[in-house]
Amino acid sequence: MNRRRFIKDTLLLAALATPVQVWKGTHSDKEVVYSTNDTLPTGQGLIDTNIHLFPYPFRELKYGDTGRLLAKLKKHNVTEAWAGSFYSLFHKNIDHINASLAEECRTKGEGMLIPFGTVNPVFPDWEEDLRRCHERHEMPGIRLYPGYHGYTLDNDHFVSLLQEASARKLLIQIAIDIQDERMQHPRVDVEAVDVTPLAEVLKDLPGARVQLINPFRHVRGERLKTMIEETDVRFEISNLDNTAAIELILKGEHPYVSSVPLPAERLLFGSHMPYFPLENGVFKFMESDLSQDEAEAIMYRNASELKEYT
């Protein structure tokens, strides 16, 4: 029995054993039905695939301190979080940043924080940074910031990095943006990443495991359709917006891409903490009418399976 089948069977048994709780709404004739998370595997909470540690360059964030951030994650039943470093955006001594990220996760993460170092493929000897992420810091993946590091997704060095990282079975996260470009500091003009070349690049890399983080402000329409239909890229949901966003995108009825559904297996929970409130990501599951299986896939199961690949 494979792991997924095992989980599904476990959930089914637990669901049969645990009656749903029912409350009556107070200002509506609609019945309110909550499933309980007793049906989740013991101890299972959310896996947040998109957080950052350390100071954001342009604002002091209220959960910028690792201790406060960790407490907030726990409050919302996040049991694992994949962490990049905000220092990655502008620092040139990348290996130092990756080492400090690994150390912060190891010493303060209480086993919850998983470091995702960065590599800039247009810097000399990026291969050594990648090697250290994998071998020295034992990271399961890397997080790339093409907009901040100054390359496009058809850059030869980027393609080489994808090849090397895939050979090492590392997950590859690509940050499409960090901040709404309309509110950037006037002295900083960072363009969102254009994913258009990625579909062609990935055709030669069938083993690559790529996740886009903060994708949905810019990966919409034909770009999103192409990513869905021609790649196996996964999508983090923190900026998947619109009323009932998850529900509609699963049905292929979302305004971002109304011609094709985005399967639940391709979506991963992420909060973009501490830049966004954690509540934003979690409320999405309340706003959308989802089956428990769909919700659990996005909340933790897809991330868990993706990480098992490494």
């Binding site: 709780q21 909550y34 499933s35 919302h76 039943n77 599951f285 989802l290 659990e296």
Partner: peptide
């Protein structure tokens, strides 16, 4: 709802 919101803060 797919889960009890209270369980996720």
């Amino acid at each position: 709802f797919a889960f009890n919101p209270e369980n996720f803060g």
